[in-house]
């Protein structure tokens, strides 16, 4: 018997295939998977989300202490007024029985307002200060309420969670902070279609409450002016979730013409306390 270790040919335990070829095949494969899942989620997810009762959405939002982040208690007069408007708008928009909107005030100079899970609508002081009349305020609230009515927060949240799962699967992350990274109480990003739908609902609220659309387009003029002042060009349409302000203003005319609604009419002034301070007592 002879004892020897012959030279074993290469490429049995390993492969001679170029690793870049494997990368290319895998990248194309995963891209196809992501695209097809995105397709299913976009078209099937919306349908599925509609089946989630609002009470469950409310339960999820109740896990977070909203009160901690808002200044409702410091502006009771304002909250009372806003909640009254919100209830009227809910009626005008024919909100389903189980959806209840709660409005919150945040004492910050940010010019913004947003709607999130569980029917919570947040309005910042910065934006309220810029509003010229109640009609514009109703447009703003109507727009945010429409997001809740059309279930946009939960729709965009499910998409957000889904994409974090997908990216963590590909990048090998643990994905433990899925809900956190999706931003449960942050302002969610809505698609352009969602914004347009909500604009339409805002017009319905205006028509329902005042019988005309006057003052509605003013809201977008405020945003437009702000962008001009801040000297930042309006982002290219592709990259912005909100439709161009110019387009949104025009949309008021289009819808008014289409439905035979008036574009002019008497504007309702805002209550007196809008002239002073929303907050009863400033904290030093």
């Amino acid at each position: 018997m002879k004892y020897e270790n012959p030279q074993i040919p290469e490429g049995i335990n390993t492969t001679k295939e170029h690793p870049l070829k494997e990368l290319l095949v895998l990248l194309i494969g995963s891209l196809l998977v992501i695209l097809s899942i995105t397709f299913v989620v976009t078209f099937g997810g919306g349908w599925l989300v509609d089946k989630i009762p609002f009470s469950i959405e409310k339960k999820v939002s109740n896990m977070y202490d909203v009160e901690k982040h808002v200044d409702d208690k410091r502006a009771p007069e304002l909250i009372h007024y806003l909640q009254g408007l919100v209830d009227q708008i809910s009626e005008a928009q024919d909100l389903p029985e189980d959806i209840k909107i709660t409005v919150h005030f945040i004492n910050s100079g940010t010019v913004n307002a947003f709607a999130t899970l569980g029917g919570h609508v947040f309005v910042f002081r910065g934006l309220l200060e810029k509003l010229p009349n109640e009609n514009t305020l109703v447009t703003l609230l109507g727009h945010e309420i429409a997001h809740v009515k059309l279930r946009h927060p939960i729709k965009s949240l499910s998409a957000g969670i889904f994409f974090s799962i997908l990216t963590s699967a590909v990048t090998g992350g643990t994905g433990s902070d899925l809900l956190g990274s999706a931003g449960l109480l942050g302002s969610l990003k809505f698609g352009r279609d969602m914004e347009q739908q909500s604009d339409k609902e805002a017009m319905v609220s205006l028509q329902g409450m005042y019988g005309h659309l006057n003052g509605g387009a003013e809201l977008f003029r405020i945003f437009q002016k702000m962008k001009e002042e801040s000297d930042i060009d309006e982002p290219v349409k592709m990259f912005s979730s909100h439709p161009h302000d110019e387009k949104r203003i025009k949309n008021f005319q289009v819808v008014a013409k289409d439905k035979g609604w008036h574009e002019t009419g008497a504007l309702t002034p805002l209550p007196d306390f809008f002239q002073h301070s929303f907050v009863a007592r400033k904290v030093n």
Partner: peptide, 25 residues
């Protein structure tokens, strides 16, 4: 990083983890 990335993509589809095969070999 390259081997790890290819392997993590491979995890989605299954099959030989070729980039690790050479490493272990």
């Amino acid at each position: 990083y390259f081997k790890g990335f290819v392997a993590s993509l491979r995890n989605l589809f299954g099959g030989r983890l070729r980039t690790y095969e050479t490493l272990l070999d």
